[in-house]
Design a protein around this nucleic acid. Structure first.
Lengths: 150, 150
DNA sequence: TCCACTCAGTTTCATAATTAAACTCACTGC
DNA sequence: GCAGTGAGTTTAATTATGAAACTGAGTGGA
């Protein structure tokens, strides 16, 4: 039982997609951030086929974004929880959410608010060191063999 | 010729994935940001099957992230270019890239640098209004029916 | 003891998506 | 003419996905 791979080891985007690029994986992570932990709850929340859910969870656990934790010994039951690696995926979900709210708007949509101000969030990506916004114009890529290009 | 849909219209993440969640779509956008514009160049760069590339490009054009532009009338030829909607997808690619570089590291990997300092970027998501970092702890979601939850 | 129920899957089979390779079509340049 | 280019389609074989039924360890009640 393989999963497809984009296999361009030099590209960090391709490597990320190797782990989360399959159908459902990102929505499973979204649910995990919402607090969903159990097999049947994921299944009902997503409407995913049970065998697919089983595979995706396995993959996410193998990749280290989720971990299983027993919450009952008798009967033996466990739940799926985000690891640090999984929690660190949050910015991807937020930028996806923001893009969806900006460009694929619907009348009724979930909106992220600042916990402080209760105002809708306006997420911006900046560089921690310089404070500069990160845009195609402010970034150069450095590829394995030295140099730099846009 | 349908494409699958997650169909949860209230979730902006699901709506985004409706457009870019299929295999290859995100890597096509990545290549577009790198400057790739022509069918055969995408095909060679990605190693994608030509009929799949054709479908994905069509979908991305229909969804408004790419547009076709003739660059020669005789012979009739066109290229694919990012629209504003497509360019606005950049933060998703950057957060994916950052996650990949942090958690799926390889010896030789492309790394984004600040154009100013030529130092590796350390992308952080902040709220434009408050300047606060955006993390699960600083966000509450507002769902269509009023209230708020984590 | 028997029966119904829960959770977390697995199995089976039908349907849909993806791939590789070959083919099309409108040109150009020799 | 004839080979070559760019941008795709078509076809047939391979994979992935989905729906529904089934499994297995255990609980709780009659």
């Amino acid at each position: 039982m393989q999963h497809r791979s984009f296999a361009d080891a030099r590209c960090p985007i391709a490597r990320s997609l190797d782990v989360v690029g399959e159908w459902w994986s990102i929505l499973i992570l979204r649910d995990a951030f919402r607090g969903v932990r159990r097999f049947d709850d994921f299944q009902e929340s997503l409407g995913i086929a049970r065998n697919m859910l089983s595979r995706r969870l396995k993959r996410l656990v193998d990749a280290g974004l989720l971990e299983t934790r027993p919450y009952s010994a008798r009967p033996p039951r466990h739940e799926y929880r985000l690891t640090d690696k999984g929690r660190d995926f949050y910015p991807v979900l937020m930028t996806l959410m923001d893009w969806g709210n900006r460009w694929a708007r619907r009348r009724h949509s979930a909106v992220p608010l600042s916990r402080l101000t209760r105002e809708p969030l306006d997420p911006v990506l900046i560089d921690r060191a310089t404070g500069q916004p990160i845009t195609p114009a402010t970034v150069v890529m450095r590829y394995p063999g030295s140099g730099a290009a846009s």
